[in-house]
Write a protein that binds this DNA or RNA. Structure first.
Lengths: 348, 348
DNA sequence: GGTAGCACTCGACACTAAAGAGTGCTAGAA
DNA sequence: TTCTAGCACTCTTTAGTGTCGAGTGCTACC
């Protein structure tokens, strides 16, 4: 690919900026009038024709202005755009919303998602952390019925997971309490990803051989953990913001989009992959993702975690035409700040 | 109001049936051709004019067919329509989906909501039970940080609630365990609505006076309960089904609707009121509810509970034009069956 | 290399006409 | 008295037409 001259870049930037603002195809005259470069529309047209040949711009129809392609946007994001700094007031506002530590972490994540959506006027999304990356804090067995035991599992960062197992034999709450005590002592601070191994190891140990109570406790914990691993959830808020974008005036498009949002498992997978791919902010533009229904959307995301360990991912989903220079720092800051809030309880 | 003759009723029914099927205004000729009554279009027209005068039908514009009004639909539902029985196969299908008791109750409710939406091709809705109507089963305090204590509260039916309190003084997990034991013993099987009184009562008692540990446990439990009471949540699934209805081809309408769904608190209030109003199935048609955004929707709902006690409410939200005769029995059956599933653990 | 001018293309919009569905009313039949 | 056939009328929908304007590509010229 031919290298872009300074002027080419300026034109590309002008087209994109204008397009992001208006959503309409941008004509040569518009750019010329802006006066960033003092050249005539005709000159601009020549440059635009070049850019189109390189696949950076696109003409929806012969006599229309130009619209950036995914490739064009990508180039712009990677090497032309300057992210704005967040004003102090903006940071304060985000802090205020997240700082009042709410009732439970579920609500914190949900609130984060809502904040992102309102603040960026797009859909906000937060992925519930995968349990496997957390550290064990506490387990509790509660007898619900003659064969039902409820298990509540809590991670150091304060994430709660509940599950439910069948237990063939009659068992009392007092016994279950003993189970809890055994397991809590055993697994204190162990990463949940290695809990299972740890249990298996212990099962082969001497104590389990002679202490039936202990070995049954291990068995129960094993089952509970098995139920827990694949658990995942996601909060998508502010979907209706997307409707306000003129690009979704089309009902058919809107419908596809809502369908995509309702089938959460696929979005979870997308986010999961994204999280593993990078530790910093990441942008996926339209066709760069594999979900058919999201081909016209982009995702701006960043992992969050407790201190250094990444736990989940949060971000903003919106149309290709978004105010990236504003949203990127918002997502970045939110992730950083949320990590701090969560990290507090994880540290000691 | 003049009483309806048999023929009037037949015409009303025919109009409504046809309208529910097609969504288009229904003309006199259409009904005549159906051949339910052997009369000419002109006769039907006379009857329709009468019905319109009574406010049961409406003509969108001078030269169009008729559409039922809310009043007309209400009359139809209350005294003309015959609910279909669910076929055995249909019942089986519903059972299958709900019976495999899932990981946790949250998932069970969510799954119910999804099932309703898929099965009725509208939006399904389930209200998370209010904690106040449940009975106490178990409480657990877990130390998260020097000043943070996480509280997990479990009801007999297996509902879990987590909250989070600040505690001014340093406290060890061992102490917290003692707290849990005290409170669990004290509150076993008490209705959560009277837990607070019970605690206050106990605080004035002799034991609290002399046993500081006990009185501190009470204090902590009191705070936890305070956080818990107003908690409520709702699952709305299958919103995209609504988009498939031609009446929502209009983007503006769609947008209002999505906004309504995103502001869950108002829908929760609506359901809450509905739940208290009646013990059986209940239908709210369009303008009969107070939410501006839902004026064009109706809600078919039924309370569910553990055994006899109503806990929450579930139902289907869709446009005025719904296949009531099919959906009503589905909602009814689902509520009954869900109550059974939940009831199991509540009984002993 | 940049610019001005010009002919051309295409979508948006407004306007018109025709088709079709459905009604209300009236006069006559059962 | 009740029903029906017929007719004039109303209103929406759809297709078709003409005009306007934004924007382009090309060419000749500075």
């Amino acid at each position: 690919m031919t290298k872009l001259t300074q002027r080419d870049q300026s034109v590309l930037e002008a087209v994109i900026t204008d397009y992001i603002e208006t959503g309409e195809p941008v004509g040569s005259r518009t750019i010329s009038k802006r006066g960033v470069m003092n050249v005539s529309p005709a000159t601009i047209r020549n440059v635009m024709a070049d850019l189109e040949e390189m696949g950076l711009l696109l003409q929806p129809h012969t006599s229309a202005g130009r619209v950036p392609t995914v490739k064009g946007l990508r180039l712009y994001l990677d090497s032309i755009m300057q992210s704005r700094q967040l004003a102090r007031g903006e940071k304060e506002r985000i802090r205020d919303i997240l700082q009042n530590r709410p009732q439970d972490i579920r609500e914190l994540l949900q609130r984060t998602s809502r904040m992102l959506s309102q603040y960026c006027r797009q859909a906000g999304v937060v992925l519930w952390p995968r349990f496997t990356v957390m550290r064990f804090k506490h387990i509790e067995f509660i007898r619900l019925g003659s064969n039902h035991v409820m298990v509540v599992l809590i991670s150091k960062a304060g994430f709660v997971h509940q599950t439910h197992i069948e237990w063939p034999e009659e068992i009392t709450q007092a016994e279950l309490d003993k189970f809890s005590r055994y397991i809590n002592e055993l697994l204190q601070n162990v990463p949940i990803s290695s809990v299972k191994e740890r249990i298996l190891e212990e099962m082969r140990g001497e104590k389990a051989l002679f202490d039936t109570l202990f070995s049954r406790a291990l068995e129960m914990a094993k089952r509970a953990i098995q139920n827990t691993i694949e658990d995942s959830d996601i909060y998508i808020e502010g979907q209706s913001n997307l409707l306000d974008n003129p690009e979704f005036a089309d009902v058919e498009r809107m419908r596809r989009l809502l369908h995509a949002f309702e089938d959460k498992s696929r979005i979870i997978r997308l986010l999961d992959v994204t999280m593993k791919a990078s530790s910093g902010i990441q942008i996926i533009l339209g066709t760069e993702n594999d979900l058919n229904e999201l081909q016209e959307m982009s995702l701006i995301s960043s992992p969050y975690g407790a201190g250094e360990t990444p736990l989940g991912i949060l971000g903003v989903i919106g149309p290709l035409r978004m105010d990236y220079s504003r949203i990127i720092p918002v997502v970045e800051f939110t992730a950083k700040f949320l990590s701090q809030v969560i990290g507090v309880s994880d540290e000691e």
